[in-house]
Structures are given as structure tokens and as C-alpha cells.
Simulated scan of single mutants.
Amino acid sequence: MKRPGPLLTLLAGLLLGVFMLSLNATTGTKNASSYRGESPGVTVSPNPTPSSSPTKAAPPPSPSPTTSPVTNADYAGRTDDHSSAVAVSLRDGKAIAYFCDGRDKESWLKGDVKDDGTMKLTGKNGAELNGALKDGQRIRGTVDLGGQQYGFTADKAVKPSGLYRATATVRGAKLDGGWIVLPGGKQVGILDRDGKPSAAPRIDPETGAVTIDGQTLTARPVTP
């Protein structure tokens, strides 16, 4: 049998070499592609906690309705049973009142007046006046005195109506007089002489002059 020639042998070697080169190139490319495809591990951050919805601010409270300060004025009137008189003087949120039956029962009371016109005034021996200003024209309330309660209405007074008082020492006696001049001119008052009450003499409502035991005194308007 005839041996293949050197040329055929050389051709076979060349073909084998080309095949091996081609195989290496394909393998290298595949490995490179595989390497590039394997991306390093990535640490995934947890989703940030969604911020809570902002709290809706509460609407500001509605402002309280304002009330006008009580006007300075004087009030005078009678109890519901017409047995006694009541006068109240208001000045700058303060009040002084006088309850008097014109014979032997009386009481001076004082206290604060709220912006809404209500008042609670107190006097000696547990005396108390509770009242409320109505439309700036009158005071409606009660007086508790000596275990009795008296309802009253005191209308706004125009001078000379109102509340008056005089104190003095005459012939060694200590005098303390209180007068309520009602609308229409009628007067109700008590003169306390050394702790003994009695009906008070009339005063001149225009000047406040009053004669007691032969001496002329001046009863002046009372304010807190």
C-alpha cells in the first residue's frame, strides 16, 4: 500500500492546528462572557420606611366671645315684697350695695362684678347679694339677710337718685347713716347711733345736707 505523501501529512497537521485554535478561541470567549455575566453581589438596601403622613394640625380654638366691661353706674329699687330698698353702685369692676328697710334692718355689701354683669357681694353676719346686670338698665337679684331672702329689681338711677352715706361724731355719739333715694324722689334710710338703728331723717337730694341732733352733716354719694 502506498504511504501518503509528505504534502498530505502536512495538510492534515495544518487542519488539526486550525481546529485547535478555533476551539480555544470559542472556549475563551465563552469563559470571558460567563465572567462578565456574573456581576458581583449587590446589597439591596431595605426600602426606606415611608414617612408617616404629617399630622393634620388641629384648627385653632375659636376665640371666646368678648364682653364689654361693665359701665360705671348706680342702680336703685325695691324688693319684690316692697318691704325694703336696695341700691348698688358699680365702678371699675367693683360694687357696693346697701339693703335697708327704713326702720331697723340694713346691710352694706361689697364685691366684684364680672364682665358678664354677674356679681356676688357679701356683708356682715353672712349677708349676701347675688345679682346680674340686665342690658345695662337694671340689676335683678336676691339679698339673703337674717335668714330671709328678698328678691329685688334695681333700675339704673339718674341723680339725685342713688346711694348716699354720712358718718360723723355728734355730741359724743358715733353716727352712721345710709340713704337710698329712689327714682321719683322717695327716700329710705337708717341712722345708726352708737349701734342703735332707727329711721333716718331726710337728706336734701341736691346737696346731701341733713340735720342730725341740731348739726348739719353732708351725705355723699357712695362708690366702691
Rank of each mutant, 00 (worst) to 15 (best):
R3E: 12
P4D: 09
P6K: 10
P6V: 11
L7S: 08
L8R: 05
T9P: 00
L11T: 06
G13V: 15
G13M: 08
G13H: 10
L14N: 09
L16Q: 13
L16K: 11
L16R: 05
G17R: 07
V18A: 15
S22C: 11
A25Y: 01
T26Q: 14
T26V: 15
T29R: 12
T29D: 15
A32F: 12
S34A: 14
Y35S: 13
Y35Q: 15
E38Y: 14
S39A: 06
P40V: 07
P40E: 03
G41R: 10
G41M: 07
G41W: 07
V42M: 11
V44L: 15
P46M: 13
T49V: 09
S52H: 01
S53H: 03
P54Y: 00
K56C: 02
A57C: 07
A58L: 04
P59I: 11
P60V: 07
S62L: 14
P63S: 12
S64H: 00
T66D: 13
T67P: 08
S68D: 03
P69F: 00
D74M: 06
A76M: 12
G77A: 08
G77I: 08
D80T: 12
D80W: 05
D81M: 10
S83Q: 14
V88D: 01
R91F: 11
D92V: 00
A95P: 04
A97I: 01
Y98C: 00
F99L: 11
C100F: 01
D101L: 00
D101G: 10
R103D: 13
K105M: 08
E106A: 03
D112C: 00
V113P: 00
K114H: 02
G117R: 11
G117E: 07
G117S: 02
K120W: 00
L121Y: 04
T122L: 12
K124C: 07
K124E: 15
K124W: 10
N125K: 15
A127R: 02
E128M: 10
L129A: 13
L133Y: 02
K134T: 13
G136K: 04
R138D: 08
R138G: 03
I139S: 12
I139Q: 06
I139Y: 09
R140T: 11
T142K: 13
V143P: 04
V143F: 05
D144P: 00
D144I: 01
L145T: 02
L145S: 06
G147D: 02
G147T: 05
G147W: 06
Y150I: 04
T153C: 06
D155W: 01
A157Q: 05
S161F: 03
G162T: 07
G162A: 01
A168K: 06
T169N: 04
R171Y: 09
L175E: 04
L175G: 05
G177C: 01
W179G: 00
W179K: 00
W179M: 06
I180N: 03
I180T: 03
G184R: 02
V188L: 09
R193F: 14
R193Q: 15
R193T: 15
R193V: 15
R193H: 02
R193L: 05
S198H: 13
I203T: 08
D204L: 08
E206T: 14
E206M: 11
E206A: 15
T211C: 06
I212F: 05
I212S: 11
T218I: 13
A219D: 02
R220Y: 00
R220T: 14
P221S: 07
V222G: 00
V222S: 01
